[in-house]
Amino acid sequence: MNMMPPKELEVAKMILETLSLEDITPNDIDPEAPLFRDGLGLDSIDALELSLGIQKKYGIKLRASDDNITQIFSSLRSLTNHITENSQ
């Protein structure tokens, strides 16, 4: 039943695990909906925890000074794309 691309599913799981969002399943996340505020309702402390989680798991460091930081965090899909593009 799961239509999510494998990488997107993996990142979705990582988000839920990092932030201990136990009552949400990856399929509950609309890959194009905003992760912060209106969408999944995450805040700045979640962004920090998530970025530490991404660094640990993928070795990718997200910086506040990155020009496209807002865009990277804008949805599950854009975050997945960023991780895919910057992995290894």
């Binding site: 912060f36 505020r37 995450l42 805040d43 700045s44 402390i45 962004a47 920090l48 970025s51 530490l52 997200l62 910086r63 506040a64 000074s65 930081i69 807002t70 965090f73």
Partner: peptide, 13 residues
Amino acid sequence: PLGRMETLLEVDE
């Protein structure tokens, strides 16, 4: 300034 999503990433740095 607080209130931006990336604020605390900046703090971490």
